[in-house]
Design a protein around this nucleic acid. Structure first.
Lengths: 225, 225
DNA sequence: CCTACCGATCGGTAGG
DNA sequence: CCTACCGATCGGTAGG
């Protein structure tokens, strides 16, 4: 013994359980991206840790080392997405003083994010359909921030007379819900289009949906200037 | 051997595979209802045949006897629902000559059916999110009938000038999609409501959503008389 | 319709 | 001593 008291070793493990996740690690990023895509395809219950490991190109034990078990991995994937989404909405619309432009921005950002990455919304659809049993309070808090952006524009618009009275939660479901459904039903749309008459209007893309929501739904709530 | 040539026994089995399903059987009905609720809760991949048997109150082998394997059972559950839905829409709205009243009827019937049985819509949400890999052509055809009701009212309304131009597929996603999302997110809504300020407007019920879709969305598409 | 099982595969963890 | 893994296998359970 040297008699020198050393500081406690820095470790990411506490009683065999990881306390922090290194989001800077490229391995962690590959695992989370792989998990997100397989949770989207097969739902929580249908997803196998082996498949996530195979897609991520790592040994399965590496997932347990870096992140944790299946439930923890699921929670981290969802939290990462909701946090990113809420951050972007708040950042890009914080300075928007016009409630109508703000709601249009909400639609635009939802559409852009769903186009950029449809795996997270698909996983969320599974989670909602399954009864939201695996939603943590932190996840609800993150979604409350997303809901809060819409609620703020509705409240300001109603106060200033720019918007007709509307329940912001109803509007949020119509705007985000329509875009969510048109995101997850893409393969089904293709199957349906093949059975319809060629003369029928084409199946809607996400920008088509966004345009309708802005030009019809939001416009209908806007008072004449 | 008696030497008497008997006719082939009437059987529902052909090379060990069932060719017809007796939908009048109470056992079959219990199996399908149990399967519908568990597919809704756990998605196709997460559903265990043992659990369906337990909820239905039958031995697991009975499911294979009456209906077939897991994929067949899933297909029968979805087909039963889509067929019922399409039948009701066509029956109740066949005589409706007013396109605006017709679209309001589409919203009302969707809402009523989703309230009556939310298990089928939840299973469909799982199926869409998972990429619609298990949708059969018969199922697409059944949905095409549902889509056709909305498309007919839109076409008639645009022809007569009662409705502004709109892609019927866009409108169908906004109407049915909003109601679908507000059906499957019920447990999540409760969790979200608990975190919001008590002064906030209440989380929307399905009738709230239906009222918005009729009074704002459909109204916005309606021309002045 | 049930009992008695099977090939395989599940999420998670051992030692090195 | 530590970190970041790997090859192999654990006790149980899935669909059939």
């Amino acid at each position: 013994m040297t008699g020198v008291t050393r500081p406690p070793k820095k470790t990411a493990l506490d009683h065999g359980r990881r306390t922090t996740i290194d989001f800077e690690s490229e391995t962690v990023c590959r695992i989370l991206d792989a998990a997100e895509s397989i949770f989207a395809e097969n739902c929580y219950a249908g997803t196998r840790m082996d498949e996530i490991a195979a897609v991520a190109g790592v040994n399965k034990a590496t997932i347990y080392y870096h992140i944790g078990g299946k439930e923890k991995l699921y929670d981290v994937v969802l939290t990462r997405h909701f946090t990113h989404f809420a951050n972007r909405l708040e950042r890009e619309l914080a300075d928007c003083a016009d409630p109508v432009e703000g709601l249009r921005g909400v639609v635009r950002i939802h559409a852009e994010e769903f186009i950029r990455n449809n795996n997270a919304p698909r996983t969320i659809a599974h989670e909602l359909a399954g009864g939201s049993r695996r939603i943590t309070p932190e996840l609800v808090a993150a979604y409350a921030r997303i809901h809060g952006v819409t609620a703020r524009f509705v409240a300001e618009g109603m106060a200033s007379g720019r918007l007709r009275p509307v329940n912001p939660a109803v509007l949020q479901v119509v705007l985000a819900g329509s875009l969510l459904v048109n995101t997850i039903n893409a393969p089904f749309r293709s199957q349906l289009a093949a059975t319809l008459d060629p003369g029928q209007p084409p199946m809607p893309t996400l920008p088509d949906m966004a345009a309708f929501l802005e030009d019809v739904v939001i416009a209908a709530l806007t008072t004449m200037p």
